[in-house]
Computed example of a mutant assay.
Amino acid sequence: MEAAAARRGPPEVDLSLLLDRLVAWVPLDVDAMLDDAAEALDDVPPSAELVPDLLERLLLHLDQLGNIAIAAGANQRMKSVADLVDHSATLRALPLPEHPAHAHGHLRRIGWTVSELMDELVESKCLKGTA
């Protein structure tokens, strides 16, 4: 009976969901991630018109790093990674404050989390460091 099950192939998957995920996939760009984190952490806040785009990119970086951490099991092996992944989810749920100084503080917290999570993933060999 097991041989018959093996011949049937893998379980059915929702191909439309798979296609949607492939189309939406954005490759990991470590240099852009570092640049965006540095921009968020800079002492000089970005101009108000740049904030929404920077926020969107930082949240994408958090998602990518969180997915890598979970897929590699780093969040299970390292409490620091688990804490950062949890913190990422909390930050992601918060709206961007309207007041510019508060918005800059929010961007800095996200940028710091991106930077720390990237460092932890490099240390745990889930991500290669950059030169």
Results as ranks from 00 to 15, higher is better:
residue 101 A to K: 02
residue 54 L to C: 11
residue 31 D to G: 10
residue 8 R to K: 10
residue 29 D to V: 05
residue 75 N to R: 03
residue 6 A to V: 09
residue 33 M to L: 15
residue 26 V to K: 01
residue 93 A to C: 07
residue 117 L to D: 00
residue 92 R to K: 13
residue 6 A to M: 12
residue 58 L to E: 04
residue 111 G to Y: 02
residue 95 P to F: 15
residue 105 G to H: 04
residue 73 G to S: 11
residue 2 E to M: 07
residue 87 H to S: 13
residue 87 H to P: 06
residue 78 M to T: 09
residue 58 L to Y: 07
residue 28 L to F: 15
residue 5 A to K: 06
residue 32 A to G: 12
residue 65 L to I: 11
residue 95 P to I: 10
residue 19 L to S: 01
residue 60 L to M: 11
residue 6 A to Y: 12
residue 63 D to E: 06
residue 72 A to H: 05
residue 10 P to G: 10
residue 106 H to W: 15
residue 117 L to W: 03
residue 9 G to Q: 03
residue 25 W to K: 01
residue 60 L to I: 12
residue 1 M to S: 12
residue 26 V to Y: 04
residue 29 D to L: 06
residue 89 A to D: 15
residue 77 R to P: 09
residue 109 R to H: 13
residue 80 S to G: 05
residue 31 D to M: 07
residue 22 L to R: 01
residue 29 D to M: 03
residue 61 H to D: 09
residue 69 A to D: 03
residue 94 L to F: 15
residue 103 A to H: 04
residue 46 P to L: 04
residue 123 E to H: 11
residue 27 P to H: 06
residue 7 R to D: 14
residue 65 L to Q: 05
residue 69 A to S: 06
residue 35 D to P: 07
residue 72 A to G: 12
residue 20 D to Y: 10
residue 51 V to M: 07
residue 119 D to M: 03
residue 48 A to V: 10
residue 64 Q to D: 12
residue 128 K to Q: 12
residue 98 E to Y: 08
residue 99 H to Q: 08
residue 21 R to D: 13
residue 29 D to Y: 05
residue 11 P to N: 06
residue 102 H to Q: 05
residue 70 I to R: 08
residue 110 I to H: 04
residue 21 R to F: 14
residue 26 V to I: 06
residue 39 E to S: 10
residue 111 G to S: 05
residue 40 A to R: 01
residue 104 H to V: 08
residue 42 D to K: 02
residue 77 R to T: 15
residue 50 L to H: 13
residue 59 L to Q: 12
residue 14 D to E: 06
residue 5 A to E: 09
